[in-house]
Design a protein around this nucleic acid. Structure first.
Length: 285
DNA sequence: AATGGGCCCAACCGCGACTTT
DNA sequence: TAAAGTCGCGGTTGGGCCCAT
């Protein structure tokens, strides 16, 4: 933006060899960086820049890799569903784009931030007559509880403080960080049979509507990959299973679903029943 | 066809956090 | 323990594209 891509001679060449380049990346620079990282990995970013023969800062290389070259990035535009996820997560987490991005595989914090700033925020500003923070769009879909409230609602017994600390910006605990987003299911017999009682992510023993109202037929219909190894990941449950011991919980969140072909089915079911995204609060009475 | 304005998005900047020495 | 180096994050900028006039 400040500068046009470097000319061929300019990349790693002798011209202004001492000077750090800025601005848009040229295809050749991309190639060098990509090749370097895929072949040798990253020790430190500054060394990557040097070893790849790029007159770029390590910081710049990192940014380019993270936001553009990484092979696992999604190229397609952000979907409606992803947008709802962003809105929901932004409402509960605030502008912690890296945390939000971590829950959306294939999306970068920069991408999400840009999307938010250029589209969602603007739309919300319009719909709320210029009000700050509160989302008109979110209001249409039902307000989420505040971060702490959400933690209180969604955390299983003994986990409230962990989720709460996550919501308030303390170090995210390893497990509950992905936990509060979606519903869970008790593991019944394992092996493909699925559980026999859906429970709220809150960990209450009362069944919620999660799988009973999934609109997709029997529970096993939506138990994607549920112990049967249908997805080649034997033993991985796409429902999170709670059996009273956090160590035995199998977790499921948006990114799991998005990665799984049948995840759409489940999300649609949730969608129909207002069980995900900004309606999360509705699913837990 | 020209042009002005709005929008999108890649990339930079500054700063705090973390790691290494 | 302190200093230096590095990383990662969120905010911001500005070039280029698109569209309306």
């Amino acid at each position: 933006m400040v500068e046009k891509p470097a000319s061929q001679a300019d990349v790693g060449g002798e011209v202004e060899a001492h000077k750090e380049r800025k601005g848009l990346w040229s295809p050749e620079e991309d190639e060098r960086l990509y090749t370097r990282i895929t072949r040798h990995g990253v020790s430190t970013w500054s060394s990557v820049a040097q070893l790849a023969g790029l007159r770029r800062s390590g910081k710049s290389c990192r940014l380019r890799w993270m936001n553009y070259l990484r092979p696992d990035l999604k190229k397609e535009p952000i979907s409606k569903r992803e947008e709802e996820t962003i809105i929901s997560l932004q409402k509960s987490l605030g502008n912690r784009w890296s945390v939000i991005a971590a829950k959306m595989p294939g999306r970068t914090d920069n991408e999400i931030k840009n999307y938010w700033n250029s589209r969602i925020r603007k739309r919300q500003t319009i719909s709320t007559g210029g009000g700050k923070g509160d989302s008109g769009l979110a209001k249409q879909q039902g307000d989420l509880p505040a971060a702490d409230d959400k933690a209180a609602v969604l955390a299983p017994p003994g986990e409230k403080e962990l989720v709460s600390s996550m919501a308030t910006g303390a170090a995210a605990p390893p497990v509950p960080a992905r936990f509060p987003l979606f519903a869970c299911q008790l593991l019944g017999g394992g092996g493909g049979g699925g559980g026999d009682a859906a429970i709220a992510a809150a960990g209450t023993t009362e069944s919620t509507t999660t799988h009973e109202n999934n609109g997709a037929g029997s529970e096993s219909d939506v138990s994607v990959g549920n112990g049967g190894g249908q997805d080649g990941r034997e033993g991985h449950y796409y429902y999170c299973a709670v059996d009273g011991d956090i160590d035995m919980v199998h977790l499921m969140s948006f990114d799991d679903l998005l990665e799984y072909p049948a995840g759409d089915l489940l999300m649609d079911a949730w969608d129909q029943n207002g069980l995900y995204s900004t309606n999360t609060g509705n699913s837990v009475d």
